[in-house]
């Protein structure tokens, strides 16, 4: 097992990619009276992990696969695997990423959630370009609003030398911790109890990441598409608010 420091660095909520400003739909769920306490927060996190968490992790893993094509077929590449030597501006890579971007759009029915994903992608890209200036970010699709966050994450993790399953883990973990931390701030929940809840979800998070990493071998149209009607509904209601504490 190679050093996990880069994994920890990229999974850390303090990595400057805007995570502190996103509640992952929790702010709207709290306002709707659907999340009020630890029990309902746990159910929220479990559902979010199985839906947005799985989809985001699978697309991050798929983007990582595009960046490191020699690892095709292996969800657990050797640490020595390096990002593809294909030069920046590779038509194959930019075509594959554009396809993933369109596939993720088709899995994100709510315009507010598409905008949030692209906004988070921009924030992550800002950090990624500052830190891994050699990574092939120029191959990301020039979609208005920027590329979706999981695509940027996949390229960034590849540039950092992380494996595909580590990439998926960061994505799945981020969908949990962002909302959990927002729960502490919005509901005044006991932070120890919220952390205990995250400990209880750790196996599910690892399992989701493993599923996502395996799914990345499938063609883009077959990637997970787990839907959550309330996530779409909450996101659109949230977008109409005059005052929001969180960006999502």
């Amino acid at each position: 097992m190679a050093t996990p420091s880069l994994l920890l660095l990229l999974a850390d909520g303090r990595f400057p990619a805007g995570a502190h400003a996103h509640s992952g739909g929790l702010e709207a769920a709290v306002a709707a009276g659907r999340v009020t306490d630890l029990t309902s927060l746990e159910a929220f996190l479990a559902g979010r992990l199985a839906t947005a968490g799985l989809v985001g992790a699978a697309f991050a893993a798929a983007a990582h696969r595009v960046a490191m094509p020699e690892t095709v077929g292996s969800a657990h590449p050797a640490r020595s695997a390096r990002p593809s030597d294909a030069p920046v501006g590779s038509p194959a890579r930019s075509g594959a990423l554009a396809r993933l971007d369109a596939e993720l759009d088709a899995r994100t029915a709510a315009p507010a959630l598409r905008a949030v994903s692209r906004r988070q992608g921009r924030a992550l890209l800002r950090a990624g370009r500052s830190i891994w200036s050699d990574a092939p970010f120029a191959d990301l699709p020039a979609t208005p609003g920027g590329a979706h966050q999981p695509l940027v994450l996949g390229l960034l993790c590849a540039a950092a030398g992380l494996s595909r399953v580590e990439t998926a883990t960061i994505a799945a973990y981020g969908t949990l911790t962002g909302a959990a931390s927002a729960g502490v701030r919005l509901l005044g929940l006991d932070p120890y109890q919220v952390q205990a809840l995250l400990v209880g979800l750790a196996d599910a998070c690892d399992g989701t990441a493993a599923d996502a990493a395996r799914a990345a071998d499938d063609p883009p149209e077959r990637l997970p598409a787990a839907a959550a009607p309330l996530a779409d509904i909450h996101a659109e209601i949230h977008a109409t608010w005059e005052v929001r504490l969180f960006a999502s």
Binding site: G25, A29, A32, R34, V35, S40, A43, F44, L45, A46, G47, R48, L49, A50, T51, A52, A102, E103, D105, A106, R107, A109, A204, P220, E221, P224, A225, A226, A227, A228, P229, L230, A231
Partner: peptide, 23 residues
């Protein structure tokens, strides 16, 4: 691609009845 969605409910779909999915 226009729409891809899989809605899963039941004992093997974690959190499906919870406030993130169907409430």
């Amino acid at each position: 691609p226009l729409l891809r969605q899989s809605l899963a409910v039941g004992p093997h779909a974690p959190g499906w009845a919870g406030p993130a999915v169907l409430g």
